[in-house]
Nucleic acid binder design. Structure first.
Lengths: 228, 228
DNA sequence: AGGAGAATTTACCCTACGGTAAGAAAGCTA
DNA sequence: TAGCTTTCTTACCGTAGGGTAAATTCTCCT
């Protein structure tokens, strides 16, 4: 099921959140403005380009901050995809369930990463991926088409976005090469080194499905590491 | 060894080419202008954006057409990478040789594709990849930094390039998912379906190293297909 | 056309990883 | 804290794909 808008950050601010939330977020969060997460994102963008007040206003107008609880699904395989998400806190993953029911993780996303189903968005097809929330998280939701419009409205975003895409391409090239040339154990070691924060927030079977092995194999690899 | 500039298309036009070439290209090619390949590329670009005469002139000024023979190496793992290549004809591949000497193919490139070592270019490191020519080919060579400058000089290229990058990201996402969820035999079938032209121009061990299996395994898969 | 070198196939056995299943541990929820 | 659920581990054996090597076929070069 797609996320219920009543779970948005705004409602939390006016006191309509549920008890589990109180345990998780400190008072400093409670005092934040309703657009705290977007303000942080804008601050980050500003380190890379000069942002006109109009562009900033545009970002406010098309975004919506959401607080998600563990297990919530933002995009579901087979359904229509409209949104793309910037992660302000927490951890999410996108995965594809194959005909045998096996889940294959394409991507994890933590603070400052974007996540969506780019295959679906770019090709205008139904979702091939499911995007789910692995820990309590905060995201900023954008309608992908509206967000894309930022490039024609405010061309200063073009080089910024091009750079982001290039970086993403490089990381995908590296991932493919690693998959081709490293053993499962080596891929796991590299994963731990590259993404220690992700390892903290995921279950082992998530990592296994990212590395392309079964949960049991990963368990064996972990046991072997301890032995040494 | 990096390609010798004396192999450029220009020299061929003035009659300084070698006999193998005569066999491969028909008279229509012989009559083409020294910038025929770039003209074709520009024609393609023009279907997607309005190109000012200045931008067109810029492309002419930074490019160089080259005719390559089979086996020529454009980028060599461990060396400095400066160039990026647009393929006008033929077939090339980029691969990475690991510590065991096994070659792992990242990408094939045929007509209208670009090829280079984007990891090296984007991160300013030495080449992790080798780019080699699999059949007699024609490429247009660009200095990657100069080509990148086109975006600030002629911002009309931005949406075009963004679209190309997005499409590439989508194909990489698909590749990763296929690698995770399909058997070697299924990946081979998909490869044949997706890239019949590439199969024509490559050796089986090239394809095996792209699929992530050994040449022998691919041979077994092929034998199995014939049996059915 | 003929011969050298390269690529492919096949056969042999080996190994890394998969599948099932059962037990242990860890997390939630009440 | 108790009890339920989920995750992790371990053991068993099965299997896809790997490694070596030899035989065969293909390619290219002269």
């Amino acid at each position: 099921m797609l996320i219920d808008p009543s779970n948005s950050h705004c409602q939390f601010i006016i006191g309509d959140s549920e008890p589990f939330f109180i345990r998780l977020y400190s008072l400093t969060v409670l005092l934040k403005s309703p657009h705290q997460e977007l303000e942080d994102l804008i601050k980050k963008i500003k380190t890379r380009l000069i942002l006109s007040p109009e562009a900033e206003e545009f970002l406010y107008s098309i975004s919506k901050e959401k607080t998600l609880r563990k297990g919530e699904v933002l995009i579901r395989q087979g359904q229509v995809v409209k949104n793309t998400f910037f992660v302000s806190a927490g951890c999410l993953r996108s995965y594809c369930t194959d005909k045998n029911g096996k889940e294959n993780t394409l991507l994890f996303a933590i603070k400052d990463w974007w996540i969506s189903d780019y295959i679906a968005i770019h090709t205008d097809e139904l979702a091939t991926l499911t995007v789910e929330c692995l820990t309590e998280s905060k995201v900023i939701e954008f309608n992908a088409k509206e967000l894309d419009g930022i490039h024609s409205l405010f061309p200063e975003f073009e080089p910024y976005q091009r750079h982001n895409l290039e970086r993403h391409v490089v990381s995908l090239h590296r991932r493919i090469l690693n998959q081709l040339q490293l053993s499962a154990a080596d891929r796991y070691d590299l994963f731990l080194k590259q993404y220690p924060e992700i390892e903290q927030n995921t279950r082992n079977f998530h990592i296994a499905s990212y590395l392309g092995i079964t949960q049991q194999s990963l368990s064996r690899i972990r046991a072997e590491k301890v032995r040494k």
